[in-house]
Design a binder for these strands. Sequence first.
DNA 1: ATGATTGTCAAGCGAATACTTCACTATTAG
DNA 2: CTAATAGTGAAGTATTCGCTTGACAATCAT
Lengths: 113, 113
Amino acid sequence: MPKPQPEIDNLFHALGDPTRRAMLDLLSRGPISVTRLAEPLGVTLTAVGQHLQILEGSDLVRTEKVGRVRTCRIEPTGFTRLEKWIKEHRSHWELSLDRLGEFLAEEDENTNR
Amino acid sequence: MPKPQPEIDNLFHALGDPTRRAMLDLLSRGPISVTRLAEPLGVTLTAVGQHLQILEGSDLVRTEKVGRVRTCRIEPTGFTRLEKWIKEHRSHWELSLDRLGEFLAEEDENTNR
DNA sequence: ATGATTGTCAAGCGAATACTTCACTATTAG
DNA sequence: CTAATAGTGAAGTATTCGCTTGACAATCAT
């Protein structure tokens, strides 16, 4: 049972969908409204609204409603969190690549049990 | 319609599951068999096998069967791909954060249509 | 005030996901 | 040879996902 880390979970889940990544690409050209975001994606306004909730929930996007138009922009927090996660894990993975020797030793140990 | 990028897609999908991330953490301690991988996770051997297929499909893990035991180890390709994706996108996001001015100008333009 | 624009809510639908169980094969140990 | 070990394959299940439709609310333009 892996201890749950909802922030990282939300993050990867959010980035796992191609439509949401396309939304991020559009937003990287500057802030735009929900309607303008939906146009090039070929999905409903409603769908975009749902994706936005997920993107906001993982701190990848921030939105603000003024009058009747909701403006969406990139929010760096999520990306920072992602980079931090990778940095923290990369060292472990690199270490693990050097462990072939240990692994073989342990293997012998096991066969002798 | 976002153009599909199956490699990145698989990658984020694979990392989106807490059990799979836990598997990676276990593997970062060195190569182990499927059974030893399953023990601390509290899921079936079958489930681990299914997760392994996904992790292999996204180049995060490599496995090799010798005799009746399949040994699993970290495969750096996937991680490298992830870091590359982030690096490529970070510059765009950073740019987008500087575009508030452009956005406001464009906003005026739109209200005058 | 009327009508158009912009977005939201609730419900539903088909597909995918993360599991499980049960049956089965292959390898190794005694 | 026999029995235990390690893993695989097929099928089933409950839940989640991405998306749609249709009804509605709020804002803005004329």
